[in-house]
């Protein structure tokens, strides 16, 4: 019981919660504007992680710098995916008819390619490096510097994005696209541009999250999928396309997961996450669906 009430556990929950919120934020942005579920989103986290790992081990660049590199790499991937694949997919009427299911399979293809290209480059074995891993004790809670940094950066990006959406012209047009796609176009929002920028930003968010993960965890080319699943749980619970609620749901999931594991054992982590995922989809298929249809 003591461990459950400790600040230690709460800190751990907040760290993973902030990461989940950040990963889900990216997925939610892409879903909100494109109306397509990106099953390869977790693999972008992986790409971000390997970018940071590569930069650290080859050029001794610390993550605080390589995080920008990771964001840029993922944004570039976003650009390539949008320009190279989706404009084509949406332009073809036979494909566009079942574009949602088709795009999911398409994204899965991208996911497989990313995983195995990285596996060919860096081998499939797990990698890691040490950065800011000294323990700080603060208010009775011991933490490593890199975890604290993760919490700070992930939260800052999430809340920064929310502020940006609320207080800038681009943020307004983006929200307009999420809520009323056709109407937004009528009032002069350049849909193409908003979609392109958003997919780049969403991918970049995953890259940032990947950099943060690489500081504290061992990374492998196949680490991405659990992040995708977590992000799906978060945005379905928070409401697809609802950015603010998604961030909140991310933190909640971090709490549920951390305390859930503390009450059972780490071996149940995957079961808990996948169980939640399946349950959410089964219990709220109409909820998920009607929201998507209405907007």
């Amino acid at each position: 019981m003591d461990t459950l009430l400790s600040g230690q556990l709460l800190f751990a929950a907040l760290v993973s919660g902030s990461l989940y919120a950040l990963v889900a934020l990216g997925l939610n942005l892409v879903y909100g504007t494109l109306r397509l579920l990106n099953i390869a989103h977790g693999d972008l986290v992986m790409i971000g992680a390997y970018t940071a790992f590569g930069a650290f081990s080859l050029f001794h660049l610390p993550p605080v710098i390589s995080v920008f590199l990771a964001a840029a790499v993922c944004a570039g991937l976003g650009w390539a995916v949008y320009e190279g694949l989706f404009r084509r997919l949406l332009a073809n009427p036979t494909l566009a008819k079942r574009v949602e299911a088709n795009s999911l399979i398409l994204f899965y293809g991208i996911s497989v390619i990313l995983q195995n290209v990285v596996a060919m480059t860096f081998t499939a074995s797990s990698r890691g490096y040490q950065y800011l891993d000294t323990v700080i004790t603060w208010g009775g809670v011991s933490m490593t510097g890199n975890r604290l940094l993760t919490l700070i950066v992930a939260s800052a990006v999430c809340f920064g994005t929310l502020l940006f959406l609320r207080h800038t012209l681009f943020g307004w047009s983006l929200r307009a696209v999420i809520e009323r796609r056709e109407a937004a176009q009528v009032v002069g929002v350049n849909l193409n541009r908003v979609q392109l920028i958003t997919i780049c930003a969403g991918f970049a968010a995953a890259g940032v999250a990947g950099t943060l993960v690489s500081m504290t965890e061992q990374i492998t080319p196949f680490m991405g999928f659990p992040f995708t699943i977590v992000a799906f749980v978060v945005i379905i619970v928070g409401g697809l396309g609802n950015i603010g609620a998604g961030v909140l749901a991310g933190f909640c999931l971090g709490l549920v997961e951390t305390y859930g594991i503390a009450l059972t054992s780490p071996g149940y982590r995957s079961i808990l996450i996948y169980g939640l995922f399946v349950a959410v989809l089964l219990i709220r298929p109409e909820g998920v669906f009607s929201k998507a249809v209405r907007s």
Partner: peptide, 18 residues
């Protein structure tokens, strides 16, 4: 089978992993 479209696709994947 009440779940449709892309949600069915990821649901089957998730179930298999579960």
């Amino acid at each position: 089978l009440r779940v449709r479209g892309p949600y069915f696709v990821i649901l089957t994947y998730g179930l298999s992993e579960l």
